[in-house]
Design a protein around this nucleic acid. Structure first.
Lengths: 228, 228
DNA sequence: GCGATTGTTTATCGCCTGATTACTAATTAA
DNA sequence: TTAATTAGTAATCAGGCGATAAACAATCGC
């Protein structure tokens, strides 16, 4: 009964993927879509980009908000922590090398148009996940870095970082972050060599930390290119 | 004919401001509104916040987009340039003092929730006005700062700043900018003393510039707190 | 006072949005 | 082969959007 006629050509193609693959495909494409259009983007436009009809989205996600939450989850959590903590604390290597390698790896993850845009959107919305992320950077990355700086400078390491120390680390970190924003969101010309940018910023941070917090060991932090 | 009945009490209050004041009031309140809600915010909600009805907006602005453009204009252009260029180039004063005073004044303008949010929204939209602003910062502020740094370090001043020099200045500038974002948009705790933050970042930038670009005059840039 | 002007509201239009229902067709199991 | 299941679509709903037209009411010149 169903095979009687040639299938109506008006309904062009009906792919029928496995549910799991479909779901993943939806989340991935939705990430691209929302990162460009913002989360105000329409479900019809999204469906068109996916090559399916709009109601199909509601077979996989109860609501647009649920889809968005899943986008946040994958963007924020998936690419996280690939052994960074160990990298930062390996005192057999010079601190500058460790920081350079860490920020090379870290920026390989976050210097991505999708990632940066969704991060900024979530920040403007004041979402919990954004606060969580900022706290994570402060506690897992910056506090760690300061600890290593103190160790390098011969300071006591036990007490928590002071507000001023944290702030200097934040300004450094934020400066690097803003490089990605300028390059990948504003489309502004930036120094081609990312690792050089990180290296120079690192030199400024490390010497700055030594100067501001009065290290007696400044000259040991990093070899000077030129000494007057 | 019109005076026959007591005025219908259902129409509560009809203020009737002068057109110019109304217009200005609309733009000011619209700035607050859009900075919080994003430019996707509805004209009805905006009108409710203004205490008037929605169609009245269209007597003062031909369309929502025109209103938005006026918001951009006032936010970006009005608070700009209060003699900053002269401040930066006054070589009778130490460079650190000049930069500290400049960034005190500059951040007094941009460290404002409304300003920062609208700046970020316009950046995500890729608007021309945002590109214009970024170019302005680079050409009028950062290039100028580098020129002064070179002068201070005894370098030739005529040639345009190198990409690496500009980048170091951008990282410094972006780090300060990001302090505002963290404090006023993310609502994250930050060092209370803004001027100290600027001062410490400045120390890092100036000593960093000297180190990275090989100044023979590093020690002259800023008095060290402690010398080993 | 009175008509003209103009600031303001009420009512509404067409369109787009997120979401639901009922149907169609591809797949799976017997 | 056939029945059951389920991926996918067409059609549609209620509500919100930007924008417009017409009615009303406050002010101003006389």
């Amino acid at each position: 009964m169903r095979t009687k006629a040639p299938p109506k050509r008006t309904r062009a193609k009906q792919k029928r993927l496995s549910p799991d693959d479909r779901r993943k495909e939806f989340v991935v494409k939705a990430t691209e879509f929302f990162s460009e259009e913002g989360f105000g983007g329409g479900t019809r436009d999204l469906a068109r980009r996916l090559g399916v009809t709009q109601p199909l989205l509601y077979r996989y996600f109860p609501s647009k908000d649920d889809l968005i939450k899943e986008v946040y989850r994958t963007v924020y959590l998936e690419p996280l922590d690939t052994g960074w903590e160990k990298l930062l604390t390996d005192r057999s290597r010079p601190i500058r090398d460790r920081l350079q390698e860490f920020y090379n790896a870290y920026t390989n993850v976050i210097f991505d148009r999708k990632w940066l845009r969704i991060y900024l959107y979530s920040g403007l919305k004041g979402l919990d996940i954004n606060r969580w992320y900022v706290d994570m950077v402060r506690d897992k990355i910056l506090a760690r870095i300061i600890k290593e700086c103190r160790h390098e400078a011969g300071f006591p390491v036990q007490s928590r970082p002071s507000a001023a120390e944290l702030e200097l680390a934040w300004v450094f970190h934020g400066g690097i972050f803003y490089y990605g924003v300028r390059k990948f969101i504003y489309g502004s010309p930036a120094l081609e060599d990312k690792e050089q940018m990180i290296g120079d910023a690192l030199d400024a941070f490390l010497t700055g930390y030594a100067r501001v917090f009065g290290a007696a060991t400044e000259l040991r932090l990093t070899p000077m290119k030129v000494v007057g």
